[in-house]
Amino acid sequence: MSALAQQTSPSRVRGAIESVDAETLTVKSRSGEDVKLTMTGDIRVLGIVKIALSDIKVGSFIGSTTVPGQDGGDDAVEVHVFPEDMRGTGEGSRPYDLKPNSTMTNATVAQTVAGNDGHTLTIKYKDGEKKVMVGPDTPVVTYVPAGKSDLKPGAKVIAFMKKLPDGSFETNRVSVGRDGLTPPM
């Protein structure tokens, strides 16, 4: 059994689209596996584009993958800004599968402080708060409207998937990088 098949559901597959038809999306995962996903009738496709760190304001609702930093804080691996209609999505902090020891925190920016080596964001969620260091090379992205027509061979995606009782996988949400961008989350 592949490592992918052993994962608990729901989970994610990150990679490049190999092929797409009316109902099936085939993704070549980062580990090299071909993953076939049945797209649900209510699939939500979101585009991902780069933005500037300065676009993050107090009150922005963000998600950030972090790893433990040397100073005891958290260092951002990536930051994504949710549009207002996605405010509250997955609010909180939990282990994440992007990197070893990584955490995903979705929260509201309470404070942003510029420093010599980046920005420190204080983010607050219902059960706590974190200080996140965002370095100058940390990818910062946001979501833009997209549709199934954006799902093309070669596009980089992160697809949220669920394993069905028959062993197949389905997806109802795919984030696709625009202009060759690989979604960093």
Rank of each mutant, 00 (worst) to 15 (best):
S64H: 06
S64V: 07
S64K: 01
T65Y: 09
T65S: 12
T65L: 09
T66G: 03
T66E: 04
V67W: 03
V67T: 08
P68N: 05
G69S: 09
Q70C: 08
D71M: 01
D71F: 02
D71C: 04
G73S: 11
G73E: 10
D74R: 15
V77W: 04
V77G: 05
V77K: 08
V77D: 02
E78V: 07
E78Y: 05
H80S: 14
V81C: 04
V81W: 07
P83M: 00
E84W: 09
E84P: 11
R87S: 10
G88W: 04
G88L: 03
E91Y: 09
G92Y: 05
S93L: 08
S93E: 11
S93I: 12
P95H: 02
D97F: 14
P100D: 07
N101C: 10
S102F: 03
S102H: 00
T103C: 09
M104S: 11
T105V: 06
N106Q: 05
A107D: 06
T108W: 13
V109I: 01
A110L: 09
Q111Y: 11
T112Q: 14
T112V: 15
A114L: 11
A114Q: 15
D117A: 02
G118I: 06
H119L: 13
T120G: 05
T120Q: 08
T120P: 04
L121H: 00
T122Q: 11
T122M: 10
K124S: 10
G128R: 02
E129V: 04
K130Q: 13
K130P: 09
K131L: 12
V132H: 06
V132I: 12
V132R: 03
V132T: 05
M133G: 14
